[in-house]
């Protein structure tokens, strides 16, 4: 009897997996550069006169996959099991405009650019700052927000400025501009850097005293200090940077579509609205 129930369970799992594959549409629509899918289907090596397979969902022509790291309120964060935030709101507008279904995928911050590059995701949206090095790997959209890097410490800490960080242990998220900046020993001498994958790990260690400070973007810092009253943001701005979404290099179609929507949202003041929404909650 037990063998049979095991077999049934396996059969159920297999069929679920298969239907999962089926409802994601054809192979061509799950290709990352979905707006380029039509062109590609034309050059497919198998039957050239077979049109791309229609997807199951009548409203959308395909999936638009957004890569993000959902630990960065207000830009992307978990509410229950859903990922929400400013970047998600913007992305939803983009998907609506392109008549596609938005799929938000959470991953490590440093995995986002490789994902966009390899085609695992269509675009990256993660409060990501434009840097020269990154621009060599991906194409950035227009800037949609400015941010400053601030120092987050315990309220009773004696760290006030960037110079005070010398000799201290500072936490940053792996791969962020804060990480790259603080890794330059000439600019930040004597700083012992702790590299975290998730901000909440860094905050835990900050609260328990394992590290002395975290350097991160100001809005997320605000959110964290709201939740943890023993934390405070220092006055000093270490540097400012601008956010943009990123797409695979050469994917000009998608880039243009996103830029159009972004510009419109900025002109309509929508992005500011989104930001306020997520800060208030």
């Amino acid at each position: 009897m037990r063998r049979i129930s095991l077999f049934i369970a396996l059969a159920c799992m297999c069929s679920m997996a298969l239907t999962g594959c089926g409802s994601s549409g054809s192979a061509s629509s799950s290709l990352p550069t979905s707006s380029v899918a039509d062109a590609q289907a034309g050059s497919a090596d198998d039957m050239p006169d077979t049109p791309p397979v229609e997807v199951s969902s009548p409203e959308s022509a395909g999936k638009l996959i957004m890569a993000t790291e959902a630990g960065f309120k207000p830009y992307e964060y978990y509410e229950g099991t859903d990922i929400v935030g400013v970047d998600v709101d913007i992305a939803r507008e983009i998907a609506k405009e392109m008549n596609m279904e938005l799929v938000v995928e959470h991953m490590e911050f440093s995995a986002i650019i490789p994902a966009v590059d390899s085609g695992k995701a269509d675009f990256g949206a993660a409060g990501m700052s434009i840097t020269e090095e990154r621009a060599q790997q991906v194409d950035f959209t227009v800037e949609y927000a400015t941010s400053k890097q601030v120092i987050l410490t315990k309220a009773d800490s004696d760290i006030q400025t960037a110079d005070d960080l010398s000799g201290k242990t500072v936490g940053v998220q792996l791969g962020t501009v804060a990480d790259l900046a603080l890794s330059e020993p000439e600019d930040f001498p004597g700083v012992k850097l702790e590299l975290y994958n998730k901000y909440f790990e860094a905050v835990n260690d900050l609260l328990s005293g394992r590290i002395d400070a975290i350097v991160l973007d100001s809005l997320p810092a605000q959110e964290l200090s709201k939740v943890n009253e023993s934390l405070a943001i220092r006055d000093e701005e270490i540097f400012t940077d601008v956010y943009a979404f990123c797409v695979k290099k050469g994917n000009t179609e998608l880039l243009d579509s996103i830029n159009t929507v972004m510009q419109r949202l900025m002109d309509e003041g929508k992005i500011a609205e989104f930001t306020t929404n997520h800060l208030e909650e």
């Binding site: 911050f109 440093s110 590059d117 790997q137 791969g175 590299l195 975290y196």
Partner: peptide, 18 residues
């Protein structure tokens, strides 16, 4: 957050994005 061989690769990966 111990920098072992795997994490070292991770850290370099985060700077290289490959």
């Amino acid at each position: 957050q111990v920098v072992d061989i795997t994490r070292a690769g991770d850290i370099v990966r985060s700077r290289m994005w490959s």
